[in-house]
Design a protein around this nucleic acid. Structure first.
Lengths: 226, 226
DNA sequence: CGGGGCCTTGATAACTTTCAAGTGGAGTGG
DNA sequence: CCACTCCACTTGAAAGTTATCAAGGCCCCG
């Protein structure tokens, strides 16, 4: 247990909504800092805020009756997470890296007049989220673990790749289990697949969570089923 | 080829937007009728309308480079389909049963003042769509074909089941390939799985597309991994 | 009556999961 | 500074599940 570290969403919402200074957008004036492992919200929580990731990475998950877990998405800088349905959050959300996060009032979703600019921003975020979730289907729908993993790494490459001379560095903020639960595989299979990609000289690993993409084109081809 | 039957979205949009009488909502005054096999829109089409299904069923798909197809969703009465990202449709959409459909102008998405009620309706539709897509993940993420198929049939049971005395009738508007492409399986595996459910007395089939759910609880248990 | 599409079923191959063991690095305490 | 522990990752072997390839049945329709 790490109750001392546990981030109480209701408490935080109180802080933000009641005590924090406000700007025209009714948003956090400055990003809130969140530590690894802390929760932003839980599934079925009454949703008072949506969250915009400024830095860091969060993990959105759904828990199943039988205890298994599905990772719905990872939230990277620029993403908006916590969009509610029927006034409630639809997933768990916790940080897998230290984050800076802006909170925006949910009321703006259904009341454009409160903040027209923010409202438009959130509408666009919702529409983009739909497209992104559809993209995720193409990954889960792929048949082979190699294709799924290559598609996932391609996504990260485009999203958080850091140029490293001729190659590109991808720092994985999530562990093998997270990737497995995102792709519908087991951690062992993910591990084996990464090993296979390394043997094919598509990747090199500095350590388990630091990937160097040696051959981006080969990676994309594998992702597309070549 | 069935070019005579092919529904040209741009043509239809012209009809709706320019010639059709308008109401306060800028929507179709009466539902437009669509026949099986006709397209509402294609992936990457510039999006001028979103569509509300009044009756019938549509199929939302994404095509892959290698020719494979992922069924993203089926649109049933009450659903809104065609929500755009970056002003473009993100999937193919065609009817798999005769449909009545209302078209709503996309401009309302980003300009609440054009029709506040419709705007709120569409925002809610977008948020609901996000939750629904997340639900779909739990199906695709399941490990066994039996669990996936049971989860899918449970969804249809709740959505379009028709009470039939002690049992519930589910008329499948889609074929085995559609189900397979929705669940990330092959048509053969879907067929075998349905046969298995029939052997277990969970289902009975009138014909291949007419399912009688004999034991809904068993179906739900299987869907949850029991 | 013939053709085509869809569904079903069978046999085999390919793939992934499961179970188990071993490796290595980070953090802790002596 | 070193030994120890823990945890994540990796690797191996066997079992289980699904895909693939192939064939047959059924129904609708021309």
């Amino acid at each position: 247990m790490q109750s001392a570290l546990h981030f109480d969403a209701r408490q935080a919402q109180g802080d933000i909504g009641v005590h924090a200074p406000r700007r025209r957008s009714l948003s956090d004036p400055v990003p809130r800092r969140i530590q690894t492992g802390q929760h932003l919200f839980h599934e079925r929580d009454s949703a008072h805020f949506v969250y915009q990731i400024v830095s860091g990475v969060v993990r959105l998950t759904r828990l199943q009756k039988d205890g298994r877990r599905q990772v719905i998405a990872f939230g990277f800088p620029g993403d908006v997470v916590g969009l509610p349905s029927d006034g409630r959050h639809t997933t768990e959300c916790d940080a897998i890296a230290p984050c800076e996060i802006l909170a925006h009032r949910c009321t703006t979703l259904m009341q454009p007049e409160l903040d027209p600019d923010l409202h438009r921003f959130l509408m666009q975020a919702a529409l983009d989220e739909i497209r992104f979730l559809q993209d995720h289907f193409l990954m889960l729908g792929r048949r082979l673990a190699l294709e799924k993993t290559a598609a996932f790494l391609t996504l990260l490459l485009d999203r958080i790749g850091e140029s490293l001379g001729a190659y590109t560095l991808v720092r994985l903020p999530m562990n093998r289990s997270d990737i497995a639960d995102y792709l519908g595989l087991t951690p062992e299979t993910v591990s084996r697949t990464v090993t296979e990609l390394r043997c094919r000289k598509v990747l090199a690993l500095d350590d388990a969570n630091t990937v160097v993409v040696l051959d981006p084109n080969a990676l994309r081809d594998l992702a597309d089923g070549a």
